Simulated assay, not measured.
Amino acid sequence: MAVPVPGSPDHVVIGGGVVGAATARSLAARGEQVLLVEQHGRGHDHGSSHGATRIFRMGYAEPDYVALTQRAWEAWAALESASGRTLLDRTGAVDHGRPEVVDAIARTLEQAGVPVERLSTDEAATRWPGLAFEGHVLAHATAGRIRSAETIEALLDLAESDGATLRFGVRVTGLDDHGDTVTVHLDDGTAVTTPSVVAAVGSWAPTLVGELLARRGAGLPAIRVTQEQPADFPSHLPDEAWPSFVHYPLDGGDVYGLLTPGEGVKVGFHGIGPVVDPDARDRTPVAAEVERLQAYVARFVPGVDASAPALISCLYDNSPSDDFVMDRRGPITVATGFSGHGFKFAPVLGEMLADLATGGVPHPRFALAGA
């Protein structure tokens, strides 16, 4: 027997990670009736949003991403004001490595009016003794460390205070597309019919809404789900010694890092992990990759103990271009493909998805293929 649901929500947001939480908050703030459902518990570690910290940085070579980071910088300040919480520690950021990459970032930031500072490797090592540098070095102050777990809680609390209903530990078992509405079936027997579903489900998007979108002539790009394994390393230095950092090694690949207070300096290779089923990953570390990460840290992060990694397991949902996927077809809005760099945009993504769910048009870069 179906569990009764009070009223009929204007929107069902599926997914309680940062994107779903931000969307529910944005919709509820507009006076929309919102039901958010999440298959796992509140603050779970099964997806891509868990953990205490994430990087905020404006270091992109693409002007539209830099423009979004500028919007997000202001949106983080507004979210802090609305929630009464500190969510972004303004530590600054440094990029270094392959000259063609760092120089492209510098040009785009300068064109956007973002103040930057170019340094020699020696100057950078003097300023940040916990890091070793190569190639070109670029610093910018409009960057920092997001308190990610606190951010999700702030967004959920704000959504709830504006009238959203939040349900955790309830899994979507099916979606019936009726043309102008969708019925959402949950594993507790609930069936909710709504004119708007926002599937902010990251790695689960292909299985949840891929077929429904295809029936509507929209091609969800191939989303590659990988298990990444960064690690926290004990720091020898005070917390204020650590900026957020991204390294583009001269021999290829990308590496990121930031301090997580009380846990260490998190360092990880970007987007190289094995492909996994998000419902069936075993979180077992790949020993060779752990050794590779330790060797990297021993060389380029001298301010930590490379011999003592605390391993982390997380999911990336990667689009082929590493661009986000955010679009709507009929009553179905989808959000996926955040490719390990979406968290910094969370308050803006929530606004963009709320716009889509209420009839707005997609950002051209993030739109689905097909009519």
Rank of each mutant, 00 (worst) to 15 (best):
G264H: 08
A141R: 15
G17I: 01
E38H: 01
L138T: 05
A75V: 08
L109W: 08
K344Q: 12
S319H: 06
D64Q: 13
I332C: 06
G359I: 02
E134I: 05
G31P: 11
R216H: 08
D322I: 03
H247P: 09
H140I: 06
E123S: 08
P302V: 10
V255S: 15
P243C: 10
R147N: 12
G113I: 00
Q33L: 07
D254A: 09
G135R: 11
D177C: 06
L186G: 00
A200R: 09
L311V: 15
G219K: 14
R292Q: 13
F56W: 02
Q111T: 12
A287K: 14
A75R: 11
T260M: 00
A21H: 13
T193W: 04
A154S: 12
M326N: 08
E263C: 08
I152Y: 05
V137M: 04
H136Y: 01
R54L: 08
V137L: 04
A132R: 14
S203K: 04
A354F: 13
V12R: 04
S81D: 13
G179L: 05
G163H: 09
D322F: 14
D187M: 02
E80F: 02
D322Q: 12
P331R: 07
E228G: 01
E123V: 02
P206K: 03
L155V: 01
P63V: 04
D239W: 00
L155S: 07
V184Q: 06
V13P: 02
D45P: 00
E150Q: 15
R147G: 10
G268Y: 15
S339F: 14
V304Y: 15
